[in-house]
Simulated scan of single mutants.
Amino acid sequence: MSTPEQSQYSPSPTVILEADKSTGEQPMELFIVDEHTENYLALQAGGDFDRGLLTGVLAGIGGIGGIGLGLFSFLKSGDFKGLNIMLAICTPLCMVPFLWETLRPLPLPILFNRRTREVYFYHDGELFHTPWDGIFTIANEFQIVGAQIGSIQNASLEIRVWKFEEPETALMINLGAPFGKSLALQKGFWEYIRSYMNNGPYFDEHGNHSDSDAFVKSQLTVRFKMSDSFKNTLAKIKQAKQDAGGRNYLSGNDFLKLIIEPIFYPLAKIKELTYSIAKSRTRNLWPSLVTERLKANGPTTRLVDLECEKGA
């Protein structure tokens, strides 16, 4: 098997990052972490980040809007006919996309298990893994150049994993999409993973162990959530009112947000609920060897140890 320096990469800057050596960067979450728990860290893999959007649009706007029209018709005429018609239309409009998006499994995440100090990845129905101790990742920086987009800096971050009980089969997997990221950003994300695995589950801005989850929360809450947009607008307007000292503080832009954002709030909440249910159902796809090791009282033996016992 070729070493990283002899791999397929181009002469563009390539850096080998190790589990027990600091990158010199501050830990930084790059909107990839799906779950940060005391026992494991789950990184989104395989896309499908917009799961739930269709349900949110059809149910949050079409369904609620249609039922609202039905209620308006009932209040105006006292006749249930209009309301019944809208319910007959909106019920399948809401339920069909909801069932379609929740019953389809999401791509399983990349799991970093603190308890057993190993990494899991599920690919095409096959389990891959690698021990954390001694792991290294390859950070490769490159540019995409085009007539319309100009030059865009990118950097990949990859680790190697082996198929369970078939170590002659290996995969290189990306820890998140490389597009639009610099080498410094990828080093910061690797530092986030290192801090979690070596000093976690919680740590400070320097990667040192912390009993407080304040820094981790500050990283995870930066991710934009559409459902928080209206709340953030209200907080901004409240602060503007205090700063204005009673003068006119409401801008035209803020006024439009107060009208538009409540309309999209149901869409956002339904999307998040749909994604959460789909993610919960997807957890059942992991082999029992993995799920039992994610529990606080589960086995601590690594998969590589099981392979050694079987002579793989």
Rank of each mutant, 00 (worst) to 15 (best):
G66F: 11
L69C: 04
L43G: 07
D34W: 05
L30I: 09
H36M: 07
G66C: 10
G60W: 13
Q44C: 06
I67C: 10
D50N: 13
L71A: 10
I32R: 13
L53A: 14
G62Q: 05
I61P: 03
G62L: 15
G66L: 15
E38S: 04
N39W: 14
T55R: 11
N39C: 05
V57G: 01
E35Q: 10
G70S: 04
D79P: 04
I64R: 06
A59T: 14
G62V: 12
A45T: 09
L54E: 01
I64G: 00
K81V: 15
N39H: 14
V57D: 06
Q44M: 10
D34R: 09
G47F: 13
G70H: 08
K81L: 15
G66T: 12
D50F: 14
L58K: 13
V33Y: 05
G78L: 13
T55P: 05
G66H: 08
G68C: 02
L30N: 02
K76D: 02
H36Q: 02
L30R: 00
D79H: 14
K76G: 00
T55C: 11
I32M: 11
F74Q: 09
G68P: 08
H36T: 02
G78I: 09
N39Y: 11
N39P: 03
G65K: 05
E29K: 02
F31W: 10
S77Y: 11
F31V: 07
F31L: 05
L71E: 06
F80Q: 10
N39D: 12
G70Y: 11
H36S: 03
K81I: 15
G78C: 04
L69I: 06
T37Q: 05
G46E: 11
S77I: 03
G68F: 05
